[in-house]
Nucleic acid binder design. Structure first.
Lengths: 103, 103
DNA sequence: ATAAACAAGTTTGCAATATAAACCAGTATG
DNA sequence: CATACTGGTTTATATTGCAAACTTGTTTAT
């Protein structure tokens, strides 16, 4: 019984950080999103968004493509298949915990 | 729309640590639990359990009563009303996030 | 032409913290 | 009496999330 509760213990720490969960949630709903869009949607500072994106990229949860919009640099992000699966598992784990702790 | 997702951003950090969420989940299901019981159920080391309990107590999410079982020290923990409310809110927030990110 | 402002990020510095290891007080055992 | 065991607490360390500073290039003002 408490073993079910404990399943939260090995939750994906990368996604368990709210800022990153939100980033991934956004990316899960769109084909791709650029840095500026993500900054507006998440409300993160550029510095922190950059750091979180780097971690997600390192884990291969997202792919980052650096290109240009005219002469201005543009950073384009999209969720990888790995990322999508990790996010699915993460959501499932949260849901499980919530349901195990009902009333 | 992304504002709903962003609601996760201000999640209760004290409860968002899985070890503590599990502790509180256990306490939410029983009248009270002693240190040894919690250690067994959570699988935490004594040091870490002690540290997490201190934080929860500091936040007044749990009350700790130090007593004896015969001659042996016993630390008894129970969820406070504040703790129960915080945990309810936390669960609600998780559920909300999961539902906002459906497919 | 050159300085000042702006855009889009990245890097750095620091404070908080989760975990493991060491420590401690008291009790039972050989 | 010494050694081991119980039930914890404290300390040390390595990782972080975040804010502030920095960078590279472009546009605007003078």
């Amino acid at each position: 019984m408490a073993n079910d509760l404990r399943s939260l213990a090995d939750v994906d720490r990368l996604l368990h950080e709210p800022s990153r969960a939100v980033i991934v949630a956004i990316l899960s709903a769109v084909e791709s999103a650029d840095f500026i869009f993500l900054q507006r949607e998440t409300g993160l500072t550029r510095g922190n968004l950059s750091a979180h994106l780097s971690k997600l990229e390192e884990a291969k949860y997202i792919a980052i493509e650096k290109t240009y919009r005219g002469k201005i640099p543009m950073t384009l992000c999209r969720l990888t298949e790995d990322g999508r699966q990790a996010f699915d598992n993460y959501r499932r784990k949260l849901l499980n915990f919530v349901e195990q702790t009902k009333q």
